[in-house]
């Protein structure tokens, strides 16, 4: 029993170390890599442009439902004027960075893990190595750089569209005065909140994309499955671990920053 536990712990520690090495090597490899800019642009397209619709839709509905629920609860206390405060603070402090990161994991992270897994499977990564290319600089660095840029941007989109959603359900569907809603929004959020939100988003981006890349990149190391099964197992694992990491990291960052 103890031996199994120890073995398991050792494996986790070793994998964490390997993951740390993988990430730092990828970041270091970015320096002076040829045509890095073009690959970063492509990664921004994959994580950014392609995921805008999903971010917009999820953000809008999050705002709508926050406005609806918040209005009914606050109205009981006669404080429906605080709806803007509730919606904006909830979005900026927690929901926007977390939900945007989860959506991006679902769309861009899973695609990345699967793509790298297939590239590993079809010997494309080995081919890059035999051609003398730095695989980390070629495949991973642009993704990480793009993530640090894209996640805050998507989070900002999420916030703004969410505030619009809160306005729609509070002032268009329900009876709140638009001026009351917006002035509460403008006066509730402090610069500190926005800064915290952006820092969170950037950290989530780096962590999740690194986790997804790591799992896809090492799809061949799975002992339980091989071939297409290994790719699917790696993708699932990438998404699950990334999602858990987002929520855990959110708690840690919040407790540090607040």
């Amino acid at each position: 029993m103890t031996r199994v536990l120890g073995k398991y712990t050792l494996r986790i520690v070793r994998e964490l170390g390997d993951f740390g090495l993988f990430t730092s090597r990828s970041l270091a490899a970015a320096v002076g890599s040829r045509k890095l800019g073009r690959r970063v642009v492509r990664s921004i397209y994959e994580q950014g442009v392609r995921c805008v619709p999903v971010i917009m839709i999820v953000g809008l509905f999050t705002g709508l439902v926050l406005g609806l629920q918040g209005y009914y609860v606050l109205n009981k206390f006669g404080s429906s004027g605080l709806l803007g405060t509730l919606v904006s603070l909830t979005l900026v402090r927690e929901l926007a960075p977390v939900l945007a990161a989860l959506m991006l994991v679902g769309q861009a992270g899973s695609a990345l893990a699967a793509e790298l897994g297939i590239q590993r499977n079809s010997e494309q990564i080995d081919a890059l190595e035999t051609m003398g290319a730095d695989v980390h600089a070629y495949l991973i660095s642009p993704r990480l750089i793009a993530a640090v840029l894209v996640f805050p941007i998507q989070t900002a989109f999420f916030c703004l569209i969410g505030l619009l959603g809160g306005y729609l359900s509070g002032s268009v569907v329900l009876a709140l005065q638009p001026g009351v809603y917006w002035s509460a929004v403008f006066h509730a959020v402090h610069p500190v909140d926005v800064r915290e939100c952006m820092i969170k988003a950037a950290i989530f981006g780096l962590l999740t994309i690194a986790i997804c890349a790591y799992n896809g990149f090492n799809a061949h190391r799975r002992t339980s499955a091989s071939g297409a099964r290994a790719v699917s197992a790696s993708t699932t694992r990438a998404v699950v671990i990334s999602s858990i990491t987002v929520l855990a990291a959110d708690y840690v960052i919040t407790s540090f920053l607040v």
Binding site: E115, Q119, S122, E123, Q124, D126, A127, T130, M131
Partner: peptide
């Protein structure tokens, strides 16, 4: 040295 893979291993992106 160059290596020609059985599966060609062309980068499809």
């Amino acid at each position: 040295c160059s290596y020609l893979f059985q599966s060609n291993a062309l980068l499809d992106s």
